[in-house]
């Protein structure tokens, strides 16, 4: 655990010393504040559209931070050759994968906490903070979803040579899952034969990231999610993240590193 935390600490340092995060945060804040200041029919009480836009920006920013940070970790170690002094220490490749995952996940969580803090500030500004319990649940579910995304990006970084290729593929896959995965059963039911079976297969195999998206509940002020489904969703994310990390470790341990 000590090794994992040490590896994670480097990733967190990297995130807050790079400019990407600040750019995204300032951009999110700026767009939200500009939209919040727009006068729609001289009504100052409208808040749901602002929640929607802020949460969308938070989702996009968090995804960008998580994917880009995770995708560059191991390739950057190899490219800058820092992997060699690192692996020359009593550190296994599995620990490198896990440490990088932990670092990106924790760093994304810190960034996410700041973004959700900003969301609360926006709510307070418009005198419509919404349910704090649901806000905390949204943060937690979002963070758990990012665990799957980060694990996916780390696996991708070991399969694809360029981080940009990996990031693009991750964005497409995650967006595709968020938009379509929940509807694959509907599509499968409408399609008989092997096509339908394939869709059912995908439906049960893909991680259902849309489970972790409770933005509509927040925007429209619905009650929080019951504890049972919340725990199940957490375990669901943990299982998928673990499977992806095992796959990443399996790929990495077979990869020769030539100095």
């Amino acid at each position: 655990m000590r090794t994992l935390l040490a590896l994670a600490w480097v990733v967190i340092k990297e995130l807050y010393r790079r400019k990407d995060f600040y750019v995204l945060f300032v951009l999110t804040a700026l767009i939200t504040l500009v939209l919040g200041s727009v006068n729609f029919f001289e009504d100052t009480l409208m808040v749901r559209y602002l929640r929607e836009v802020t949460l969308l920006l938070i989702w996009v920013s968090a995804l960008v931070i998580a994917v880009v940070t995770a995708a560059r970790q191991i390739p950057a170690e190899r490219e800058s050759r820092t992997i060699f002094p690192l692996l020359a220490k009593p550190v296994t490749r599995g620990q490198v994968v896990l440490g990088k995952f932990l670092g990106v996940w924790l760093a994304s969580g810190l960034a996410l906490a700041l973004f959700y803090g900003f969301y609360l500030v926006v709510g307070a500004w418009k005198a419509a903070s919404g349910s704090l319990a649901l806000g905390l649940q949204a943060f937690w579910l979002h963070w758990m979803m990012l665990a799957v995304v980060v694990a996916l990006a780390i696996l991708g970084s070991l399969l694809f040579s360029a981080p940009s290729v990996n990031s693009t593929i991750c964005f497409v896959v995650v967006t595709g899952i968020l938009l379509l995965a929940g509807h694959l059963n509907t599509l499968a039911a409408a399609q008989p034969g092997p096509g339908g079976a394939l869709m059912y297969g995908l439906y049960f195999a893909l991680p259902h990231l849309e489970l972790f998206d409770v933005r509509d509940l927040m925007i429209h002020e619905h009650p929080p999610v019951p504890l049972g489904p919340l725990v199940i969703a957490t375990l669901y994310a943990a299982v998928y993240a673990a499977l992806l990390l095992v796959a990443a470790w399996w790929v990495f341990r077979r990869k020769p590193l030539s100095t």
Binding site: V10, K13, F84, P85
Partner: peptide, 14 residues
């Protein structure tokens, strides 16, 4: 053991 690689590159942000 201690290891010094031929080309030394470390985390530039640290």
């Amino acid at each position: 053991i201690g290891y010094l690689p031929e080309l030394t590159y470390y985390y530039r942000f640290l």
